[in-house]
Design a binder for these strands. Structure first.
Lengths: 135, 135
DNA sequence: ATAGAGGTTTACGTTAACGTAAATTGCATA
DNA sequence: TATGCAATTTACGTTAACGTAAACCTCTAT
């Protein structure tokens, strides 16, 4: 919104390469109303905002959200929440997500320490092997 | 393995209820060679080990692993790794998983702080509304 | 002028992870 | 003995998130 905004643009192929996905995926996200890029005739033109959106979609996916869920989060974030009801449902939703994320944190931590165990055992056995231990 | 092992057993329905899934899912995991419970005639009988396995499967799913991936992890964990080659591939795999988990941790943290932002903004607006602010 | 690289739409195919229905079985209880 | 509950197998249906193919346009380079 600044006077001389750095308005970079991208083609679908450029974005696809940058994020290591296919153009098909990006078009699919648009089909699901997760994006709405500008056009130059037939061709899609993506701006910085679109690029950020795409980033958010992919982060959501990494966290196990479905595209439908990501869409809901977008709508929440985009909507200028006027009514107290909307604000409250919004708070409820963030609480839900927070719970899921906390569970994931827990899961990750336990898995991490388990990986630690496996690794140390592996390394021990390896050094035993190197010492020429046959048993 | 103790003398008098607390060998609890469970039916498929019991496990399903405990973990809030359907018997169908449990049978499916077996079909995919993720479990292999004992039988009493036709009926499946699950022991403590099986119950732990199921727990691990569900944790894996929460973390976004496919059943095939979970299976691989099981095989890794179960295999008595004798050769140095196996040990090394094992270390490689744990490294890969660790990278994914770290990425997820990063994602979760940023998402968490974003949720914080949304929440505080919501609460502010709500208290404004309560003060009778119309604008 | 033609070839090639990228873009477009339309539409059908694919995979994972179950859901769901049908038909059967065994056990316990009214 | 009949009824109902929980288990079983077999098999087809379903949804999400794309993959893939066909047929087309448009620009640039040779």
């Amino acid at each position: 919104m600044s006077y001389y905004d750095t308005e970079a643009t991208y083609t679908i192929g450029e974005l696809a390469r940058e994020f290591s996905i296919t153009p098909r995926s990006i078009r699919f996200y648009e089909e699901q109303s997760l994006m709405n890029p500008a056009r130059t005739g037939q061709n899609r033109i993506y701006g910085n905002k679109d690029r950020v959106r795409l980033k958010l979609i992919l982060r959501g996916k990494r966290l196990g959200f479905s595209l439908a869920e990501v869409k809901k989060l977008f709508e929440l974030y985009d909507s200028n929440p006027d009514s107290a009801v909307q604000l409250k449902t919004m708070l409820q939703l963030t609480e839900q997500k927070r719970a899921v994320l906390n569970q994931q944190l827990e899961d990750i931590n336990t898995l991490m320490s388990e990986l630690d165990d496996v690794e140390t055992r592996c390394r021990e056995e390896l050094s035993e092997l190197r010492r020429g231990n046959i048993a």
